[in-house]
């Protein structure tokens, strides 16, 4: 029902990615609507990062039709890259540069003018209430703050879609809460958020969640529907049930 109201910005049909004999992504099918918060869950090695890399244009798929922001991932990676923001698993700002310099650098590589960078930096830092630390180097700042800054940097060029690959790893619950508030705000502004996570409580915050097991999407629906389908009370149980089913099949 959600997808019907808003146009899809990511369309994936029959996505397959092989590394030799190993199949990292086995026939994935899903759409993500504009402004949606799409949760991408799975155990380590389930193929999440591979899928994200393909969607970002960092890797070419083996087969399948995939479009991101209306552009084809095989031929139009340059156009795609202009429309997306990305925050990686590892922390992705420069530790030896100051907050301001990081914003300047990332704004610069996205081709923003100095005036625009300065305006947006001021605005974003203001919102984060971090204007006071703009001249501190990143290694002097606690991790939780850095994650919030990294999210802001990933959005400095106002992308259509932002990919967050385990953005809240190692962050305390309060900061995670604040981080999700930022995600909601972005989604309210029409930005599509594609997020992977290990925290099942975070999965509850997503509009829809897909659960990957061994390279396949085992389930894809709203958190509420998933819980009802599996007859359990939390996403944690949904996840364990799906992962276990797979293990039993394999065994």
């Amino acid at each position: 029902m959600i997808t019907k109201q808003r146009p899809p910005v990511i369309q994936v049909q029959n996505l397959v990615k092989r590394f030799g004999n190993f199949i990292a992504n086995d026939n994935l099918n899903f759409d993500v609507a504009q402004g949606e918060i799409f949760g991408f869950l799975g155990a380590n090695g389930a193929g999440k990062t591979t899928a994200i890399k393909i969607l970002c244009g960092l890797m070419t798929p083996t087969s399948g039709q995939i479009s991101v922001a209306g552009f084809d991932v095989y031929r139009q990676t340059d156009q795609i890259k202009k429309q997306i923001g990305y925050m990686s698993q590892k922390f992705s700002m420069y530790e030896d540069l100051t907050v301001k310099e990081n914003f300047q650098f990332y704004g610069g590589i996205y081709g923003l003018s100095n005036i625009v960078i300065r305006e947006r930096t001021a605005e974003m830092l203001d919102k984060l209430q971090m204007s006071g630390i703009k001249n501190k180097t990143l290694n002097e700042i606690p991790l939780g703050w850095k994650q919030k800054l990294a999210f802001s940097v990933a959005m400095i060029h106002r992308p259509l879609i932002v990919f967050l690959d385990e953005p809240t790893g190692g962050v305390d619950p309060i900061t995670r809460r604040q981080f999700w508030e930022m995600i909601y705000e972005a989604a309210n502004n029409g930005i599509t958020v594609f997020v992977t996570t290990h925290y099942m409580d975070e999965a509850e915050y997503c509009e829809r969640v897909s659960i990957m097991v061994d390279g396949r999407i085992e389930a894809l629906d709203t958190p509420k529907n998933l819980r009802e389908q599996q007859g359990v009370s939390s996403m944690n149980e949904v996840f364990i049930k799906l992962a276990r089913k797979q293990n039993l099949n394999n065994g």
Partner: peptide, 13 residues
């Protein structure tokens, strides 16, 4: 190592 390379590659540089 720092993971910044991925971000550079995702940008349209």
């Amino acid at each position: 190592e720092m993971g910044t390379m991925e971000v550079l590659l995702v940008s349209h540089l």
